[in-house]
Design a protein around this nucleic acid. Sequence first.
DNA 1: CTATATGATGAACGAGAAAG
DNA 2: CTTTCTCGTTCATCATATAG
Length: 306
Amino acid sequence: MTRQLMVGIDKVCRSAYSYASAIRTPSVGIMISKDDCIQKYNEYKKQHEVIPKKKDFFKFAGIHERQLVGLYGRDAYTKLQEECGDEANKLNLEKTPTEKIMRQYGDLALELEELPNSSDWIERHFKPSISGLERRPHFIKWSEFPSKFTEWIQNNQVKGYEKVLGYINESSAKSKVKAEKRDREFEKLISNIRSWSPGRRRNSEGEYKIELRRHLESLGYTVNEEFGESNFDLLINKRHAVEIKKDPQLSEYDRLFGQLARHLQHQLRVIALILDAPSEDKFSNFTSLVDTYLCKDEKIVEVIKK
DNA sequence: CTATATGATGAACGAGAAAG
DNA sequence: CTTTCTCGTTCATCATATAG
């Protein structure tokens, strides 16, 4: 029954359709030509003294987009604009080839005789701009430019930028030295804390904190307490965070885990110092959690137990 | 409504330099 | 040595014209 109904509706639609298309046949005269479109286009320009946007053109000319497509095929409006001697409104969406970007960078470095910074790029109005570079489809953050450049040179065996590679090596060597210095400082701090032992058993975390602080200060560290948004227990040399827990239960380990994660957002390296740990079980469980989930890439959490 | 390649701009951030 | 200033970098947001 429903089926019959559908067929009936279908029939009605079909007949309506054929009626409509009959009206629109060329013989009736609604068909428009390219010349009509061009004329309307120019008319719009005269009236508004602006090149029409696509939508505005259709509204103005009283034409349906389909009709224009019928005349010009794909990119119809763009073709019309070109035919009228205008540059198409359509955005030029050709992506800047990697080669061009890299050569701009390399040549700029050669000219400056050092690695360019983003201001240099802006000054020359290179394309894409900094904001275009860092996103799709290029994904080149300025700081990553040197490494991407090196990669490009290697992959394509490009010659002529040896000097630039030299600059890149120089600067990465410099930052390596700094990183190593920081590493060594951190290692030393760890060993200093490891070799420290509290004078006596204390009743609270706070007392241990004070004692450790005195100890570290006597070794020449700069120590700040309860520092910054993330509230470390101690911040050593403005770089390394220390979190202290005394006699933690499971729930306190959990809390500590969260605190460490938060600290890692601010510092690359964090020390968790656990005092008077009662249960070896919970402790080792905690350290394995930390190793699995917190120590990633550059981020390091060192857990010390006393 | 979404995708496209890109631009503009201002806020947030971080490091280093200058000034105190 | 500490506070303040400056510069470079990154992020988020808005915008664009058109096709599908």
